[in-house]
């Protein structure tokens, strides 16, 4: 914030002129925002440059925004790793299955608890709100999943996390803003609750559905912990992020798979360059998607989340 030097009162022209204090402030603000953008973007652009650069050359350092010795080798190496391809497939599958099922389940529950005439409205709400604050923790959950045969399966990725009390609350707040008269007139026309949900409420809830779908999809896309805990011994259910994590560890402890994949092709890749390529592959879908969903999640967050 610039010093607030009071300018002597001059007859102000219609278009407000910038005072010295304003100029100082705007300059400061520009520098701050510029630094913010650079710090946010530089690491990502740097990763991109390293992923397109020859591995052994990159070890010398000094690569910033552009590759020095251009190559596609790193990407070819990543895409040749069996587990990585499998992980990509599983991640896409769990993102699609997980998002659709979670959206349906949370929307239905939000619909039920937002019906003003529903007899057990407050009890059902309380039942789910409690789960936000109390949970069994890692070990009991782990043992339960084992008992239910959810470990060593794909189902562990979408069944247990399908319902989230937070998502219900966000959707409920949104649905409560829809006038009751719509529901009443549909009921007069003989529509059942399912028709009302599908034909009346859901079309009006597109923004909040998009917000929740984005939350769940990003969560699914980015998760690795469940793959590590429940499917460590089952490479057929590995995920993209978990494979990425193994690559990250291999930077310090030369993992076999990367070195092998590189050696068989006689290429000069390093764990770091391969990981950079894997990172970029993982990030690209998100970067391409989120700017378009921006207006939805901004409204979704501010309407549903905060007012709760």
């Amino acid at each position: 914030m610039g010093k607030n030097k009071e300018e002597k009162v001059v007859v102000k022209p219609k278009k407000r002129k910038l005072t010295t204090a304003d100029k100082v402030f705007y300059t400061f603000n520009f520098i701050f925002m510029f630094a913010f953008v650079v710090i946010t973007l530089y690491p990502i652009l740097n990763t991109l440059a390293i992923s397109l650069n020859d591995g052994t050359d990159a070890v010398r350092g000094g690569i910033h925004l552009f590759p020095r010795v251009f190559t596609w080798k790193n990407y070819k190496t990543v895409l040749a790793i069996q587990n990585f391809k499998r992980g990509a497939f599983i991640t896409v599958a769990r993102t699609i299955v997980g998002t659709i099922t979670a959206l349906i389940a949370n929307a239905l529950l939000a619909f039920i608890v937002s019906r003003k005439r529903f007899l057990f409205r407050s009890q059902l709400s309380a039942f789910w709100v409690i789960t936000m604050y109390v949970n069994g923790g890692l070990i009991p959950t782990f043992l339960l999943f084992k008992a239910l045969h959810l470990t060593a399966s794909f189902n562990v990725y979408w069944i247990p996390g399908m319902v989230s009390a937070f998502n219900i609350l966000v959707m409920r707040t949104y649905m409560q803003g829809i006038p009751d008269s719509l529901e009443e007139s549909a009921q007069l026309d003989g529509a059942g609750y399912f028709t009302i949900f599908l034909k009346i409420i859901s079309p009006l809830c597109k923004p909040v559905y998009a917000t929740i779908a984005l939350f769940v999809a990003v969560y699914q896309w980015n998760s690795w912990f469940d793959a590590m805990i429940y499917n460590r011994m089952n490479p057929e259910y590995t995920t993209l992020q978990y494979e990425l994590m193994k690559l990250l560890n291999s930077v310090t402890q030369q993992s076999g798979s990367v070195a092998d994949a590189a050696a068989t092709k006689g290429q000069t890749v390093t764990p770091q360059s391969v990981r950079s390529a894997a990172t970029i592959i993982t990030v690209i879908p998100i970067i391409m998607l989120y700017p378009f969903l921006q207006r939805y999640f901004v409204t979704g967050l501010t309407i549903g989340g905060v007012k709760e």
Partner: peptide, 11 residues
């Protein structure tokens, strides 16, 4: 993801 963020930090 944190995997990516920590990878970037490492670099």
């Amino acid at each position: 993801s944190w995997i990516i963020v920590t990878g970037i930090l490492h670099d």
